[in-house]
Design a protein around this nucleic acid. Structure first.
Lengths: 250, 250
DNA sequence: CGGCGAGTTGATCATAGTCAAGATCTGTGG
DNA sequence: CCACAGATCTTGACTATGATCAACTCGCCG
């Protein structure tokens, strides 16, 4: 349909950096070509840039190619809740694609590179490429899974447990993407973003991180996290390590 | 495919009670027939019955025809977080359908009637009936939307605000389904279930409901909720009333 | 040098948790 | 019909977790 939008667009999905990663399922050449036809360009944003706003109905949907960001919602008086962290391979804009508008905002926490799709093509994707439609649901189910985990954490865990869980979960995701070492990672998020994710005040989050540091469990300082005692971290977070799984990519 | 499973099965989707409700989009006769072919039966459960368990990979997926229930997750020591309320028209088992297992449990809070699908047919649905696949994503996006709202509530609202928000949100959903009057509803959930949903202790939830009663805002007693001052409730909950929208149904 | 964003720390306060006892209601069996 | 047990809800007293306030450090950038 839109393969004829001209040769000069920055459409280079076959050079998609995600394809290199072992955690993603593979496309056939035909599928690859088909997906490329949906791509309408790439978007480069800097740290702090809004990507989609709550209540908006942007004409674009995105797949994250590089960088990390946050999904969040705010109350009128400014209180903010981070409802999710966004990493490469994540799909942004499902709600805008399928309902009319986004129910949360998305903002870049690092420099990000996004693959851009036209919202109007979204419906067509299900019709012409059912497997990709299925994958959209897969990603949605995964997002639902994360949200459930966060809700359990914020609703029922203590500050200590929450912070430990968040650290583990961030590291786990980054590690699966090859963006972290086994016991350390570059942390692109601020402590304020973490605080807003776990539902604590900035001050208390900082104090909790200090305790983790003093107890020799994990050390978050200077934009780096070192996990000194992974077993203890898991234990505090209260998770049983699940097995990794292959994921689709839109 | 499985239209030939025999004539005696309790498959009577055309008598589906949901079809009467104005909030649902309409099927063509052909689609209706197609969906019926996916149906593998009906399930009747009593209050308190588990429908799916966290970690399980039940061979069934469900659409709720009647009754209400809860989605929840638990920590090892028994702390429980209700991550969502289930009402007629909701789809249960997306995670089991696309990933391998459920990440949360589902339990009936009233007598419930469920439409049962085979998990193995789920993938086929996307292939043969793309519009229904799209609708699955619609429902997933909606669930994600609710989860985001709850997370904001539990993470950033005060006890008073949370309870008010939960009351409003429950009433709103029930009202849209024709299961509540304009200012009252039969409440099938217990205060413990509410407490576990808003992330408060049972005791504090009870005390908060008492305050709402004393202030003449809303009265939850004896399994009934009366909203005496809807405007005040909205104001406390901190929501701006959105417009209703037509929804799909699987 | 000054200002800003990010993080740290201690003191104090308030919100919500825990504990315990009792009130109600409901279904069940005698 | 009544007695009893269990589930649900209520209330008060006390406690603890985490919020708020305020001051200060540190690094970075213009």
């Amino acid at each position: 349909m839109n393969k004829s939008t001209g040769p000069a667009m920055r459409v280079r999905c076959s050079a998609c950096p995600l394809r290199k990663l072992s955690c993603f399922a593979e496309f056939s050449d035909a599928e690859e070509a088909f997906m490329s036809s949906f791509k309408s360009g790439e978007l480069d944003v800097d740290r702090g840039s809004p990507i989609v706003m709550e209540g908006s109905n942007s004409p674009h949907l995105f797949t994250v190619l590089e960088g990390m960001g946050i999904r969040y919602k705010t109350l009128e008086d400014g209180r903010r809740q981070v409802i999710g962290f966004i990493m490469p391979g994540d799909f942004v804009g499902l709600q805008a694609g399928v309902m009319d508008e986004m129910q949360h905002s998305v903002e870049a926490s690092t420099k990000m590179l996004l693959c851009v799709f036209r919202r109007t093509d979204f419906h067509q994707l299900f019709r012409d490429l059912p497997q990709r439609g299925y994958d959209v649901s897969w990603l949605a189910a995964r997002e639902e899974h994360f949200l459930g985990d966060y809700l359990l954490s914020v609703g029922r865990r203590s500050a200590m447990e929450r912070v430990a869980f968040a650290l583990w979960s961030l590291h786990r995701r980054a590690f699966d993407l090859g963006l972290a070492k086994a016991t350390s990672m570059d942390m692109p998020f601020t402590q304020l973003e973490l605080a807003d994710a776990v539902g604590l005040s900035l001050v208390h989050t900082s104090k909790t991180l200090k305790k983790l540091r003093e107890r020799g469990v994990a050390d978050w300082s200077d934009r780096k996290v070192m996990i000194s005692d992974p077993d203890r971290l898991l234990e505090i977070a209260g998770v049983d390590q699940p097995a990794p799984r292959l994921r689709p990519l839109i």
